[in-house]
Design a protein around this nucleic acid. Structure first.
Lengths: 189, 189
DNA sequence: CACCGTTCCTAGACTCTCTAGGTAGAACCC
DNA sequence: GGGTTCTACCTAGAGAGTCTAGGAACGGTG
């Protein structure tokens, strides 16, 4: 008997790759087992169930994503930081749609409680916004709007919601200009 | 034998209701059949398959949503129209999360080709933006950003992404203020 | 070498989608 | 009222997926 030599980490990595290729909801225990040349039941030694597998994809994706964003934003402020953040965010989501989709799942608080990436990504956003001179509660409001705009844009783009011929690239960078202007003129009170 | 008296419309309506109650991905043919006290196979007389059922939910939801938005926006312009549009959009999504989720599916062009609601919702957005004095291509760019912001906000809210204690209601209306300012100062060229 | 934990297996229960072909109610028409 | 036809609903079953229980073989450790 030749063993595949699996582990929780290997299974998660392969699942993430599969999610990027065929979509998160096409990642099934049995399809993954097939990919490893192994029986379904074997995977349950490494992963509790399908739900947990997807959460693992999300945690992996979240880490990779914030790492890339952090690297791009490092040393920048204001418009430069905003553009770097946004482009790193979007590029990751487009290159890794499955991982990205996983990060958008609904989690129980305890599932992501010990996720460093989550906390770090919030810090990154707030740091960026503070450079615009914002303070609470504007910080929270602007942060939410920014996250919503980024996520909404990518979601619509990935789901084919932009049918109009105008290039999404152009639209995107013009939207970033607009958001920059918005943050500079955030209406306080 | 007592008949349930089903039809495609009744099945769709019940499926939409079910989606709002338990989530779109919990709407299965068998669960729906159970709800009607009927065997799974019986539903296939009314609906081609699960995919088509979900598309029907989306089309139904889309119609209801644009109808409500149109009613709220009618006769308003500028900030009033923006706020009315946004609030109607959000309220519908929060009251009908299943229907709303269905409208965010990825569709083949032909599936939604004859959807009046889709075209009307685009017209509504563009009408609103023209009142801000925008012209192409700013119209498209601003429209995309607006849709992204609305959708992103609701998606994050529905998926529990706003953990911070600050009231979402307040954040939301402040974000609408901000978007209003943004549209008034949209950076052309 | 014998022990032990881990990896992988078989077997099977349960759920879901969807097809093929059959039965029984309702509506029409003479 | 009896026959025809449409269609709502049925049984039966194939196929795919999740997941559990319990067993076998491999790898490393004493």
């Amino acid at each position: 008997m030749v063993r595949a030599g699996l582990s929780a980490a290997k299974v998660t990595e392969a699942a993430a790759e599969m999610a990027d290729e065929v979509g998160l909801d096409q990642v099934t225990i049995s399809a993954l087992a097939r990919r490893f040349g192994v029986k379904d039941a074997s995977l349950y030694s490494h992963v509790k169930n399908l739900r947990e597998l997807r959460v693992r994809i999300a945690l992996l994706g979240g880490e990779e994503m914030t790492e890339r964003i952090a690297a791009e934003v490092a040393g920048r402020a204001g418009r430069d930081a905003l553009v770097a953040f946004a482009n790193a965010y979007r590029r990751f989501a487009l290159e890794h749609p499955g991982r990205y989709a996983a990060t958008q799942m609904r989690f129980d608080p305890e599932e992501v409680a010990d996720s460093v990436a989550l906390r770090r990504s919030i810090e990154l956003t707030y740091g960026m916004l503070r450079a615009y001179g914002l303070t609470e509660p504007d910080l929270t409001d602007a942060g939410r709007l920014l996250r919503a705009a980024f996520h909404g844009y990518i979601h619509l783009e990935l789901s084919g919601g932009f049918a109009h011929p105008r290039e999404v690239e152009d639209s995107w960078s013009r939207s970033l200009d607009a958001l920059h202007v918005l943050l500079e003129n955030w209406p306080s009170h």
